[in-house]
Amino acid sequence: MEKKEVVFRIKRFNPKRDSEPYYQEYRITVPKGMTILEALHVIKDEIDPTLAFRSFCRSAICGSCAVKVNGFPKLACKTQVFSELDKFGTDTLTLEPLDNMEVIRDLIVDWDKPLKKMEEMKPYLIPDPSVVPSTLDEETRVYPEELKKYDRFTDCILCTSCFSACTAAQMDEGYGGPFQLARVYRFAVDKRDALKEERAKIGYAYDMWNCVRCEKCADVCPKHVGPVDGIMRLRGLSIKVGLKDNPGARHVFAFYKSILESGLLNEVLLPLRAKGIKGVLENLPVGIKMILKGKAHSPIMRPIAEHENLVKVMKAAMEVE
């Protein structure tokens, strides 16, 4: 049975008592197969009962035990110690509380803020009386392909890992957040819902266009929800419900239009198409520098070879259900 001596370097902080967070090291013997959560329990049971962390189901479904392991949010319960050691080529693992939230104590963060934000964003089905039967003698007919639109977005366990990693949330207090926006999308494409696509307006109000698409939420999600995909599609729905006159939406049209025209992106026209004259003026100094360096193509672009079959594909894709 393979065993290793492992040092767990754990960030500790009790805001009521400590002026600064500090790191404490615990050395334990870890057998192959042990999870980070099991290791935390060994430390708590055998070395230091005062270490504070959350845990509950230990089977990756309750979302309690997310912590940062060597800088990245993980569910402690589904993360093997050995695989992390291998990944970082080390025998020391640093455990820290999640980011973008305040620390209550040690590895325990205050997740109320992101969860409250979700609650503001109407994260619940409001039944559409024209779709959902009015009596309990009948179920709504939902076809498998309709379910598929939102199925994976219902896998979210609210562990807040994505929120911890989110670049936009870090930058913008008003940003809705990855799991929150993904849940807005989940209801926006549920035919049983009364608001349906109108929900995209909630996403808009919560700055969804500020998502930088860094894919961190998709990468850290222990349930493979891929919140960013929901956000992208919710943006699409916002255009559909008429929120067209904004840089995000116009950027989308610019892409679509130029691919349809030539098969390639017309970068030269992008500032104008995405942001109008303002876009051109804002980017004029950089634009001039780039032109002088020969970094610009002609504004009139030659279509790619077999452009006609691209157009056919795009048209067919736009028509398909």
Binding site: G236, F255, Y256
Partner: peptide, 13 residues
């Protein structure tokens, strides 16, 4: 052709 940079997903997946 251009890959659409993911932006095409915003038009239609």
């Amino acid at each position: 052709s251009c890959c659409g940079a993911g932006v095409l997903e915003e038009v239609k997946e």
